[in-house]
Design a protein around this nucleic acid. Structure first.
Lengths: 329, 329
DNA sequence: CTGTTAGCGCTTTCAG
DNA sequence: CTGAAAGCGCTAACAG
């Protein structure tokens, strides 16, 4: 290969890895030969020499049932797609619980099969975060660090508060009694979503009494939503599509018709035709990759409201400005 | 490392790769040293030397919305978990369409970043199958080869016919008018599922007039299911959980109560409490890995009916034997 | 800016 | 059965 371009093997290596240190004319000659011969460097040799893999390790979570799994899946897809553009590969693995996950990450890292990792579903005081920080293994968490006293680390999260705020503002267009159907206090993400609804209601000077908390189950959600409807709700903003599914069940039973907005924009929302807050996992993936590259410390991604206009529980046609005058694009 | 055990580096390599050619006593000594030092061979060096990666490449499909994605996800998880037991890694990648997928597989294979691949969602006359067979790249398809005249290749599929047959038999326990709600003729998997229902009805000597075909959409399914109920259906066997969701909507609207059985056993089935045929993706993954190892040509995996006893649309408590005397375990 | 030398850690080949 | 030698293809370090 090197001979074909009339240069040494080393110049080829330089041309490919550090183009700016080779003479432009030589560079062009090399690149031409590369293209002509369809040459591509042997990655195993490179990895052996540099002991780096340019590979990102991601754990596949076990349950993957329901909506959570779909989200992680879309995230993984976005990461993989964008990693390819950065000439990086993605290696997946499974683990039995957080300790095992850390053990496997250690092993993959030590054998440099992957040199950076993405942690998903990070929780309060996540043991994995502490372990990886201490081990000095590069990683980014998808899920913000809720613990102020925890170790510093890179993370990316979706601004759930902004999402429900936008959803609430959109619902205010059709009536003032916008209800919230969420999870019990205590989960970071759930609390943020409730806070967004509350903020929007506060700004509009409206009461926040139509607020119910249930576990993420359509049956329970249906009960709670029925009560909200009985209390005069003109719209229901939900903390998840699962809850929204239950809310729509309540509408059907009561033969009512008010907008329902879900969260996560899953296939359920698309199938039944209700609006839902889209977590913009493509943006999250981009942010994660940029943090892996060392660009910043953390980042909050703003989700987008995906409006759908189902005749019975969709949002009305969009107005140019929402209630408080903020553009609701 | 080698020195620690008092043997040459080569003996270590042999002990790890071809244990049977080294003296048992030496072997034991080596293994002891390996365990003590926590030694693990450098995979990049090995891969460079052997130009093999012991890695399986799997494409992450783009849409991953709805139920199909959840299935692939569970499959990927099972594959990854079981691959680890076989000391194999899993590399994921994305592609824009089948041609790009083949191109990427070619590239990964040539650079031996992965030495075997799994094709998912294989279709009639799948172009990827032909291309990979011709290129001599090892792969296994998840999804059977419906084309008799297509190239021979390894595949694994779920026996959908057996699944709906079992579901139908279970429903016959509560009434003879078991309806089928499926997709239009033409999809291999959909036709198999319908055939299973038909077989069970034929065996029981019952009419197969309660048969409707709609696209995989809950709304359409609800309409069709309403008609089936009006026609006197005593149970509805569906080709997917999506259709089953619609059928349950119809039950709610008609205030009726008959068993509904879905297919795929997704979170929707678990959430709403209807029975569903579980594709046993763990078994599929095991079969795929065994075929990658070269064990056979193809394999049909039998799914299992996951019975749930929801008061309004679940199956009744299980009887020891179903209508035709076959054990319905 | 280009060429030469050396070595990453392993396994295959060949002598003992 | 065990040991020594060679080389997989690359890039870091230095000499020109």
């Amino acid at each position: 290969m090197a001979a074909k371009a009339g240069v040494s093997r080393q110049t080829v290596s330089n041309a490919l890895n550090t183009p700016r240190i080779v003479h432009p004319a030589t560079l062009e000659r090399v690149m031409e030969a590369v293209a002509e011969l369809g040459y591509s460097p042997n990655l195993h040799a490179r990895r052996l020499r540099t002991s780096s893999a340019r590979t990102i390790g991601v754990r596949l979570e076990p349950v993957h049932d329901g909506i959570h799994g779909v989200l992680l899946d879309r995230f993984l897809h976005a990461v993989t797609e964008q990693a390819a553009d950065l000439d990086r590969h993605v290696l997946v693995f499974t683990a039995d619980g957080p300790d095992d996950e850390v053990a496997r990450i250690r092993s993959l890292s030590q054998r440099s099969l992957a040199d950076a990792f993405i942690l998903t579903s990070t929780d309060h005081r996540d043991a994995r975060v502490a372990a990886l920080v201490e081990a000095g293994i590069p990683f980014v968490a998808f899920g913000r660090s809720w613990d102020a006293d925890g170790p510093d680390h890179a993370w990316v999260d979706v601004d759930g508060r902004a999402g429900t705020r936008e959803a609430t503002e959109a619902c205010l267009a059709v009536g003032e009694r916008v209800a919230f159907l969420g999870w019990p206090t205590g989960s970071g993400a759930g609390d943020e979503r409730r806070a967004g609804w509350r903020e929007a209601m506060d700004v509009a000077g409206l009461a926040t009494d139509l607020d119910r908390a249930v576990t993420d189950d359509p049956g329970e959600a249906q009960e709670a939503a029925s009560e909200l409807l009985a209390a005069g709700a003109t719209a229901i903003v939900c903390a998840s599509d699962t809850l929204a599914l239950g809310a729509i069940g309540a509408l059907a039973r009561a033969d009512a018709s008010v907008p329902v907005v879900g969260f996560d924009d899953t296939g359920v929302a698309a199938g039944l035709g209700f609006s839902s807050v889209d977590q913009s996992l493509g943006d999250v993936a981009a942010a994660v990759l940029s943090l892996l590259h060392g660009d910043a410390d953390h980042r909050l991604v703003t989700p987008r409201l995906h409006r759908r206009a189902h005749p019975r529980w969709g949002l009305p046609a969009q107005r140019t400005a929402s209630a408080d005058g903020k553009e609701a694009s």
